[in-house]
């Protein structure tokens, strides 16, 4: 074999190769369904969200107030079973303005961009953020370091889910 050959194969296809019937394909569609148990710590977290409250856990050794709450401190590897109510406000650590859907298709005309953010919740240890959404704000006005407040769904619509908070709005 020629010693200079370092690249071989990887025959590129165009959509025309497929539409013209030059190459063949088989297709299948898999339908996977799952139901996840929420676990000990997150079950409590969700039950408090249903009451429009955010709760975390505190490690008695490293003193971190952690969000999402957890059964054990992953740093100290001991139980973290002290429950602490936090504020439903926080600070934007970072954000994005997203114009594509999960499948990479573009948002439609008139559809608003999605506004994901990492929000450091007041009362948790510094840097303890959660991923959530921003709302009631023009994208161009979003800044890191901005103070935000949770906007809760009405009690009748809350179901024990992270989406019981509709989004966070500027304070």
């Amino acid at each position: 074999m020629d010693e200079k050959i370092k690249v071989s194969g990887g025959t590129g296809l165009s959509s025309k190769d497929i539409s013209s019937g030059k190459i063949f394909m088989t297709e299948d569609s898999l339908d996977c369904a799952y139901a996840w148990d929420t676990g000990v710590a997150i079950n409590r977290y969700l039950s408090e969200l249903k009451k429009a409250r955010i709760i975390g856990t505190k490690c008695r050794k490293c003193k971190r107030v952690m969000l999402p709450p957890r059964l054990f401190c992953e740093l100290c590897f001991i139980p973290s079973n002290e429950w602490v109510y936090l504020q439903d406000s926080g600070v934007v650590n970072t954000f994005s303005i997203c114009y594509v859907h999960w499948d990479a298709s573009r948002i439609g005309e008139g559809e608003k961009p999605h506004l994901p953010a990492v929000i450091e919740i007041d009362g948790a240890s510094q840097g303890m953020g959660i991923m959530h959404l921003l709302g009631e704000v023009e994208p161009k006005h979003i800044k890191t370091g901005m103070k935000v407040q949770a906007v809760w769904k009405p009690e009748s619509e809350r179901e024990g889910s992270i989406t019981d908070i509709k989004y966070f709005k500027p304070l």
Binding site: T38, L46, P68, W102, P116, M131
Partner: peptide
């Protein structure tokens, strides 16, 4: 699966963030 996927995230989010 519980605290994030309910928000219907998009993979690009984490890189953008």
């Amino acid at each position: 699966s519980i605290t994030e996927r309910a928000l219907e995230p998009n993979l690009l989010w984490i890189f953008a963030l």
